[in-house]
């Protein structure tokens, strides 16, 4: 018990430090972009920035839960595309009402996530490999439905979800705030949420202490698919198109953001609040690239490098955590 308390204190401390690390990137970045361009703080740009952050931020909620169990979901980009395609297809090709389209898209996302969960828990496939396989399958499904072309939305009011504003706040940002709050409450104040941390910390111990590991994991992947579905519907609404390839970079972006915000790939470490700072940083980064007119190709290379850098940091801090744990264990024995 003492160990667990110590460990949680320790991970809290590490998370705190890591949040500081992100801020060490975010604050200079904000200063830099403010001096480079006076448009950054304009209302118009901030609104655009928050719409972009909302897309990745919503998916981050699901991804963080999956990553906390030491899993990963590479298929969220494909789920996002598929959900957008299905949503627009249901409304425009089949002529269903708007609510049915939205619900259809979100449900497809949850179903895709549940499929991932099934492969990972029932078939015991490594999550990286399973979601790689489903990623290709979902991509193929989206391509098959649309025959490779984007489906255009003609239901005008649907576009309001992605483009509309409540006062000065874009609707996607409001949806993000609601989902994010729900995610934080779920992780901190429900039994399932807390067992997610327990599984990531030590799966066997969690199992031994009576946590239904498989069930919890299944839930995290389903939530992850659900958030990707919601994000996909919002994106389809914003672009007024269901594109089968629109989400191809999303998984990488969201994973990088989560790790930047202190989520460890080895599970159990980090908080959703911290990870949110990661998404914020990524959003500001790509926004400032656009402000400084940096080509998309360069952005792709920089994102690749950034991912590798956060992996390096993650591994180094995982090793130091391990050493610190061994040291405290040694002290306890002595």
């Amino acid at each position: 018990m003492k160990n667990i308390i110590q460990k949680s204190l320790q991970s809290g401390f590490v998370t705190f430090l890591k949040n500081q690390k992100v801020l060490a990137i975010l604050i200079p970045l904000l200063i830099l972009v403010s001096t480079q361009s006076n448009k950054f703080w304009s209302l118009y740009n901030l609104q655009g920035l928050w719409v972009i952050i909302a897309m990745d931020g919503i998916m981050l909620v699901g991804m963080v839960m999956v990553m906390l169990t030491a899993g990963l979901d590479l298929s969220i980009g494909a789920i996002m595309s598929l959900a957008g395609v299905i949503c627009v297809y249901l409304m425009n090709e089949l002529g269903l009402p708007m609510w049915a389209g939205i619900l259809g898209g979100i449900l497809v996302g949850a179903l895709g996530g549940a499929m991932n969960g099934l492969f990972i828990t029932a078939f015991k496939i490594n999550p990286f490999i399973a979601t790689l396989g489903t990623m290709i399958t979902f991509e193929g499904l989206a391509m098959t439905i649309t025959d490779g072309y984007p489906v255009v939305n003609k239901v005008l009011i649907f576009s309001e979800i992605g483009r509309g504003k409540l006062g000065i706040i874009p609707i996607p940002a409001i949806i993000l705030a609601m989902i994010f709050t729900a995610g934080v409450i779920f992780l901190h104040y429900t039994e399932t949420g807390r067992s997610i941390y327990a599984i990531g910390g030590n799966e066997e111990a969690a199992h031994a202490s009576g946590i239904r590991v498989k069930r919890v994991k299944f839930i995290t992947y389903t939530i992850c698919g659900l958030t990707a579905g919601i994000s996909g519907v919002i994106l389809a609404s914003r672009l007024s198109t269901g594109s089968p390839i629109v989400g191809s970079d999303s998984a990488l972006n969201v994973i990088t953001a989560a790790m930047l915000g202190g989520i460890s790939m080895s599970g159990g470490v980090g908080t959703l609040e911290g990870a949110f700072l990661g998404v914020l940083t990524m959003g500001v980064l790509s926004n400032s690239f656009n402000m400084m007119n940096i080509q998309a190709y360069y952005q792709q290379v920089i994102k690749g490098i950034l991912l590798l850098v956060v992996i390096v940091i993650d591994r180094v801090s995982a090793n130091s955590r391990k050493k610190a744990l061994e040291r405290t264990r040694g002290k306890n024995q002595a």
């Binding site: 590479l74 990488l252 790939m265 290379v301 690749g304 991912l307 590798l308």
Partner: peptide
Amino acid sequence: IIVTVGTQFMV
């Protein structure tokens, strides 16, 4: 997997 996805992006 995740490392080589990163290098894939870079390359």
